[in-house]
Design a protein around this nucleic acid. Structure first.
Lengths: 123, 123
DNA sequence: CAGTATCCGTCAGGATACTG
DNA sequence: CAGTATCCTGACGGATACTG
């Protein structure tokens, strides 16, 4: 596997597949936010609705299905009345948190720089 | 700033802005691939076209403008005939490579797991 | 409560043609 | 060579109504 010596970022065709793969898994509007919300433990559907301001009923369902399909989130239904369903991160889901956190920190640290540059660029 | 103790991933409203911010900057189809291609130094427009299989003329322009606008990529035009323009990562662009590489490695390492899980889930 | 189904608007992004 | 402008399609995602 070739990697750039300075940074470790692959520049091969194969490596670009991985970046695309990441986007395919969590590149949509709600996946990352949903994962972040599940960081501290299992949550119910309604809790997630409440804690993800702006998400629609439909999109939460769809996002959870997608994450579940990829093995990042588990779904547990309890046979009760009223029905209760809990979503939680799987070990695989947890394994994403560390690299994801790095990227989030980077965004946080560079937010102002980017905003400044954008203003300058527009003028 | 509240962070989850176990993982360091923010779960506050503010932190979700950062994840959204990342997606806004590089969440489209071609930004990450373009950045990866610029890792090893400056490249010309045509080189990038050739090295990003499937990208259209229009989308490369649009992607480069967006990255330029955010200060991740610099554009240098040489007053020659025929015209020559070179794109390169800025220091800010370089600063993204490390966290990005972590995420790429994660995708690489978990690709098979996800593929397996997806097959199982479909049945 | 936790979904599924349907309709519909918006927009990313491809194809193509035209300029400096 | 390195763009810009225009048109068009398909996927993302919101609103709403209906089930177990």
């Amino acid at each position: 596997m070739e990697r750039d010596d300075a940074t470790g970022l692959c520049t091969t065709d194969a490596s670009r597949q991985y970046t695309k793969e990441v986007l395919r898994r969590v590149g949509d509007t709600w996946s990352l936010a949903t994962i972040a919300r599940l960081t501290d433990g299992p949550h119910r559907f309604t809790e997630l609705m409440k804690d993800l301001p702006g998400i629609s009923h439909r999109m939460l369902t769809q996002t959870l299905r997608s994450l579940q399909r990829d093995g990042l989130v588990s779904r547990t239904a309890y046979a009760e009345v009223p029905p209760r369903v809990e979503y939680a991160l799987t070990p695989l889901g947890h394994s994403m948190l560390e690299p994801l956190t790095e990227l989030t920190k980077w965004a946080e640290d560079t937010l102002d720089q980017v905003a400044d540059h954008r203003r300058t660029f527009d003028t």
